[in-house]
Design a protein around this nucleic acid. Structure first.
Lengths: 151, 151
DNA sequence: CGCATTTAGTAAGCTAAACTGATGATAAGA
DNA sequence: TCTTATCATCAGTTTAGCTTACTAAATGCG
């Protein structure tokens, strides 16, 4: 039992294992409903594409915290899978704007559904109230950490 | 603002980003005090060596959830760095028992200190009480996922 | 005891996902 | 115009895991 002082030493472990646990549960749920072919690295695109007007590879890379070259690879894979398509940017002929295809949007819906399922699984352990509080606190930590960061 | 319903969709993001944030802070703190040369994968050894009598490569691999061959590589690296040393197991001449060197133990102390520093950073955002509750809840989630909790 | 099976460590090579470095085309600014 | 910065891209490298395959030792069975 990680009580009191001990939990501090295991903080990193807790966070890492929980992130892994979530990923496990999400993958299991997606697989169960027959949604496959998308891996962890592809997730960055689904998470960030369209947010804050991010629609170029370089923007996605910035949001995901990886290099543009790495993001390109991911985008190419998703393009080959028919999840996204790219069009030339009318405002900048160097750039290409990335958009979801219908298939990509359908996948996002599935992802959302599975994420909610995992949320419910967790809520079944903690109770909805504690679950909400806990995740809200984690978000607070993230925001508190970003404040100095010029993200 | 991730309020109410919205936070469910961002659950995975929250967990992943927080794990990353922790790692960032920990690395920064370690670097600041001049502790370097140990990477993320080495961490598994520092986390699990000695726990539940885990002192062979195969045990560490099991605890860390990776293959013995992968753990061997990590152990060899740490051995080259003078963090651990290996002696033949008197009870099993196939096996070798892994032990921390003085240097390895010193590193653990640094790691512990840095982890506590990050804990305090987080506690400064949430307040100690909320921080404790939050992490306790996360640990509950992890145990709830395992159910077969022997440790 | 002798032999099959399992287990611990090791080696070689593969893959995935990030990285660095460099290039060509375009944009933006002096 | 010329220079520098930016977007996409190509090529090669690193890292951390994987699978396959092997040796040596322990274990279990007849």
């Amino acid at each position: 039992m990680a009580s009191g002082r001990q939990q501090r030493h295991e903080l990193g472990q807790t966070l890492m294992l929980l992130a892994r646990d979530f990923h496990h549960r999400l993958s299991a749920d997606l697989k169960q409903r027959g949604v496959e072919g998308v891996n962890a690295s592809h997730n960055a695109v689904f998470l960030y594409l369209g947010r804050n007007g991010a629609s170029r590879a370089v923007d996605l890379a910035g949001a995901a915290g990886i290099r543009p070259q790495s993001m390109m690879k991911i985008v190419h894979e998703l393009e080959a899978m028919g999840m996204v398509e790219r069009h030339p940017d009318p405002a900048d002929s160097r750039a290409k704007l990335i958009d979801f295809t219908a298939r990509g949007r359908a996948f996002i819906a599935e992802l959302s559904r599975s994420t909610e399922t995992v949320w419910e699984q967790y809520a079944a352990i903690l109770g909805k109230g504690s679950m909400r509080d806990t995740i809200a606190n984690l978000n607070t930590l993230l925001q508190g950490g970003d404040e100095t960061d010029g993200g």
